[in-house]
Simulated scan of single mutants.
Amino acid sequence: MSVFSLFSLFAHLVEHLADLLQPLFHASAAAAAIVLFTALVRLLVHPLSRAAARGQRARAALQPKIAELREKHAKDPQRLQKAVMELHAEEKVSPLSGCLPGLLQLPAFFLLYHLFSSSTIGGEANGLLSHRLLSAPLGGTWADALGAGGPFGPAGLVYLGLFVLVAAVAAFNYRRTKRMMANNPVTMGAGGGEQVPGLGAVNAVMPFLSFFTLVTVAVVPLAAALYVVTSTTWSAVERAALYQ
C-alpha cells in the first residue's frame, strides 16, 4: 500500500467515524471522531504501557544491587555503566521500555498532521478541512484563530479551552513527576550516578516536558492538537493508575 493510499484510507476512516457521530455532535462530529480515534489508539497501546509500569517496578527492585555496584565501581564510571547494563540484561529488565508506548503513537499523530495540513488527498479536494470544533476549523492553527478574531474571538476561545486543559494536565504531571523523583532519587537517575548514559540530562527536564505540549497545541493544525490533548490527558490518568 502506497503512502497516498494510506492517507486516503485514513481520511475515509475519519469521515466514516464523523458520520456515525454526527447525530450526537453535529458540526463538531469530526472533532469527536479524532478524540475517539485517539482513545482507540491509546487503548491498543495500553498493554505496552502496563508492561512499562511492570518494568519500572522491576528496575526499582534492582536498586539495592545497583547501589552495591555503584559503591564497588565508584572510581570507574565506565565500568559502572557497563555493570549496570549487564545487570539489566541478566534480569531481563529494559531501562528504556517506557519509551515504546510514546514511539508507537507517532504514526497516528503524523497521519492526522498530514491530513489536516494538505489541501488535497489522493488528488481530490480534502473535505476534512471544512470540519470544525465549534467555531475553529480543524485545519487551522492558533495563529489563524488570532488573525480571525483575536484570543477571545469564537475560534480563540476554543484554543483557550484547550490551553487551560493542557496546563491543568501539565501541572498534575509536574507535581507527580517531582514527587516520584523525590521518593526514588536513585531510580530516577539522581543521587550519585546514572543508570543509563544520558538519562541524567533527561531527568533534569522531565518535570517540565508536559508544558511543552502547550507549544505543540499552538502550532499544529487543530485536528493534530486534539490528538495531542486527548493522548496527554489519557497518559496522565493512565500513569496515575499504573504507577501508584
Rank of each mutant, 00 (worst) to 15 (best):
L62E: 10
Y243M: 12
A29S: 14
K178Q: 10
A89K: 12
A167K: 05
N184D: 14
G122T: 00
G200F: 08
K72Q: 09
L96V: 10
W142Y: 11
L214S: 12
Q22I: 04
G147F: 13
A145Y: 10
S231K: 06
L36N: 06
Q244P: 13
S49T: 15
E238V: 14
G198C: 01
V215Q: 09
V228F: 15
G140M: 14
L87H: 04
W234E: 15
T213I: 08
A125L: 01
A240G: 13
E238A: 15
R70F: 06
D76R: 03
Q56G: 08
Q244L: 13
A171L: 14
S130K: 14
A31C: 08
A224L: 11
L111H: 00
D19H: 15
L111S: 00
A223N: 08
E68G: 11
Y227W: 15
A52R: 05
M180P: 02
A190S: 10
Q105N: 09
A136E: 06
F109Y: 08
A240W: 15
S117K: 01
A33I: 07
S28K: 07
Q63P: 01
L80N: 01
F208P: 07
A30Q: 14
L162M: 11
P197V: 04
R176H: 14
L209K: 03
E194N: 04
G147L: 14
A223K: 11
R42N: 11
S118A: 13
A136L: 06
A224M: 15
